[in-house]
Structure formats: structure tokens, C-alpha cells
Amino acid sequence: MTPHSILPDTAPDFEPATTINTNSQALVLCPPAVSSHPDLLEKSLSIFDKSSTDVQMLDRLSLKVVTLPTSTYSSVLILADPSSNTASLELEPYVLQCIFNSMLPKATLRSQEETFARVNTLQFLVAGFMVEKDVNGSVVLVKPEFTGNASVPLKSRRKQRVDDSSELNSAMLESVPTATEAPVIRGVGFVLNDDDLEDDDDLIDEDTLLETGDLGTLIQPPQCRPDPGKRRRACKDCTCGLREELEGEDKVKREAADKALAAAKEKASAGVKLTVNDLAEVDFTVAGKASSCGSCYLGDAFRCAGCPYIGLPAFKPGEQVTIDIDDDQL
């Protein structure tokens, strides 16, 4: 264990994100056995600046007795387990994810254990780390700048097999939305497994969001007062009679139009060939009255309110019009 492998990396390529704090915060993680070797712990910690270094026990993290803050540390060090030289450190996915979330983008995670990275590579990749090597060839884990799609979604983790690491790598390289500056992605600080959501106790009561929650501000409609000239709408299962009233209006219109069409049909069967121009000029409800718009043939989009052709399809100018009054039974 050479000294420089446990020194915090203060090389200039390493900038903390501007939105959090400007001082480098470090995290030292201790395997359980370290607590029975306090002198070792003191020695390891002596090289750190105590005011900007947090120390946590891995087993307490694993038991969720403590939590880590999100997006805080620029370097993390896992101390060696003093109880055994050959022990390889196994880190649970939950703990790894906590550590990951507590790190700033571009922050590094190192271990004093040499066997560390070789055994756990897959787990690191799945948690979102990039695996790199430093100048001596020891393994350094780096939290990438954009954590978005670069980490494998939590849901699929369980289904991965150990020998599928090449698939994982390509998943990590999926493109991520570009941004003009390095965003700080706030993690939630915990990991959720598929069955964690089965229990409603893990969720807040959504009714409280309405009862006591802040509903923000609501946009006011431009004209709050109902315009007397505007058409009204009836509710789906209207019980007040408005629906019947509106349907009645439509029915009256339809009947008036049908009447006009019936008159036209009579004329047609009497041998008078009607072209569109004729129809446009004659109002059948009042003998001899001329139509004012001449747009009847264009279709409902162009017809006036009282048009006898309302509800009929458009017809082509000059076309001989066939008026079909009969309709299928309702």
C-alpha cells in the first residue's frame, strides 16, 4: 500500500460541479473489521483533511442505519479489510448505488484492496461507473458526467448474467441528450427493486396531495363570464332538459331542410331538371325567394344557418343533383 494510492486526487482535470460546493469533499468507507483496528483507521485517515472528509462504516450503510448525501463527494476511498490479506471486498448493489449517488460527476472511487476491481467489475458497470486505470495500473472507478441513459435501468439488473458484460457496455454507450453544460443529475439516494413497489406503505397517500397539498396557480380562462350569445352544451347524461332542447333545435332545422328537399324532389320528378345553380337561387320554403349566398354546393362548412341543404354532402357546380330523402332506419 503505497502512500500515493490513498491520497485524494487533486489533479487539475478534476473540477467539482459549480452548483454544489467548491470545496472537495472526500468519503472514506471502512469495512467492519476496521473498527477493531482503530490504530489502522487513524493512520489511514491521518493523511486526509478532517474538515472535508466523511467517514462511514460499510456495514452500517448496508443495514440502512446511515444514508449518504447525494452528489457531494469528489473522491471516495474504500479502506482495505485488515482482518485478511486475501479477502476480496464484495459490495452489495444497494451500497454501490448509494456510493454512486453520493458522488459528483467525474468523482473517483478507489480501494486499497488490489483484488477489488477484478472481482466486482460487472457490479460497477451496472451501478453506472466507468472503469479506468490510473498511472500505476490500479483500478479507478469514475462516475461519468451524464448519468442519464449511461446507467442500466434498475429494473433489468436482475436479469443480467455475469458473462453478458459486453452487452452491458454497449448499453452504456447509448446516446444521451446533449446539453451545453454539465448538468448535475440529482439521484434519489436509494435503489428500488421490482417488488419494492408492491407495498402501499412505501408510497405517500395520493389523496393528501389534493387535501393538503399545494396546487400551484391555475390559469384563468380569458373570458370567465359565459357569453349570452354563445351556444350551450349539455352534459352527457343531462337530466335538466338542455340536451332535449338542443336536440330539438337540431331536429327542427333538419325537418325544415327535409321539407325544402321534398319540395325540390317533387319538382325534379315533375320533369324539371335542377342544376346546382337553380337550387342556389330558389328557396323552397318561400315561393319565389332567391338565395343570398350561392355557396350551398360547397358543403356545410360554407352554408348559412337556414340553408335547406344543411346536413347534406357537398355537390359539384353544374352537377345534376339527386336528392335522396330516405335514410336508413335509426
Partner: peptide, 13 residues
Amino acid sequence: FLVKRIPRDWLKD
């Protein structure tokens, strides 16, 4: 989105 454990400042940005 309703999970209790989500920190209350998660979406502050």
C-alpha cells in the same frame, strides 16, 4: 413518483 423516500428537494432544479 409517490415513493416516500424521495427527497423533498429532488427536483429543485
